[in-house]
C-alpha cells in the first residue's frame, strides 16, 4: 500500500467561547486507540486552575491531561493547555510552557500552540478551530497551512460565536468547513480519515 504513511502526526484544536460542548462531543467519539496525540488550547479563566480538565474528562473516550513543562507527548492522549500559560510544542517528543505576554488577549493562546506545532511537525499537523469571539488562531491556522498541514474550522453559521472561525477563513485557506455533527463524525472516524486524506 503506497499510502500506508499517515498524513498527520498530531491534531491541534483551538476554541474559545462556545467551544466547550463541541470539544466535549469530539472527545466522546474519538477512538480509544487513537494513534496520534490531540492538543487542545481552549481559552479559560486565568484564576481557575482546577476543574476544566476534569469537566472534559467526564465524557472523553481518551485520557485528558494538563501537561507540565517538558512533559512527553504521547499518542492517544488529549492534552489541555493549562490556565495562565502558553503551551508550545518544543519537539516531537516534549511540550514546553511559557508565561510570556498575552497573544490576541489570550494566555494560553491558540496562535502560539498552532505556530509551534506547525514549526515542529511541518505538514504533519491537523488543525481545527472552533467557536470563539476573538481572532486568536487565525495566524496559527495560516502557519499550519503554509507548512503543508490540513485546516478545518467549525462552520461559522453553526458556531455560537462565529468570529474565530470566520477570521481563519478570511486569513488563510481552509480545507474543510464542518458543522458540529459532521465534525463529530469526522473525529469518530479519524483513524480512517488519517489515511483517506493521505490517499487523496
Amino acid at each position: 500500500m503506497a499510502n500506508e504513511k499517515k498524513m498527520w502526526e498530531i491534531i491541534v484544536i483551538g476554541g474559545s467561547a462556545g467551544s466547550f460542548s463541541v470539544v466535549s462531543k469530539i472527545l466522546e467519539k474519538v477512538p480509544r486507540n487513537l494513534s496520534v496525540p490531540i492538543v487542545l488550547c481552549l481559552h479559560r479563566l486565568k484564576d481557575k486552575r482546577e476543574g476544566f480538565k476534569e469537566a472534559l474528562e467526564i465524557k472523553s473516550n481518551i485520557p485528558v491531561r494538563e501537561p507540565c513543562d517538558k512533559d512527553k507527548i504521547e499518542k492517544g492522549v488529549a492534552y489541555l493547555a493549562p490556565s495562565n500559560y502558553h503551551l508550545l510544542i518544543e519537539s516531537k517528543e516534549i511540550f514546553a510552557l511559557s508565561t510570556t505576554e498575552l497573544v490576541q488577549y489570550s494566555r494560553p493562546s491558540i496562535d502560539v500552540l498552532f505556530e509551534s506545532a506547525a514549526d515542529t511537525y511541518k505538514g504533519g499537523v491537523l488543525g481545527l478551530l472552533l467557536s470563539g469571539a476573538n481572532r486568536d488562531g487565525a495566524l496559527g491556522m495560516s502557519r499550519i497551512k503554509s507548512k503543508g498541514g490540513f485546516t478545518i474550522v467549525q462552520d461559522p453559521k453553526d458556531a455560537s460565536m462565529p468570529t474565530m472561525p470566520a477570521a481563519a477563513i478570511e486569513t488563510t485557506t481552509i480545507d474543510l468547513v464542518l458543522d458540529t455533527s459532521n465534525l463529530v463524525s469526522f473525529f469518530a472516524n479519524i483513524e480512517k480519515n488519517l489515511f483517506i486524506h493521505a490517499a487523496s
Binding site: 495566524l139 495560516s142 502557519r143 497551512k145 503554509s146 503543508g148 486569513t171 488563510t172 485557506t173
Partner: peptide, 11 residues
C-alpha cells in the same frame, strides 16, 4: 500542490 497564504509578518 499545497495552497498557502504567507502572512507578511511571518519571519
Amino acid at each position: 500542490m499545497i495552497s498557502s497564504s504567507i502572512n507578511e509578518n511571518d519571519i
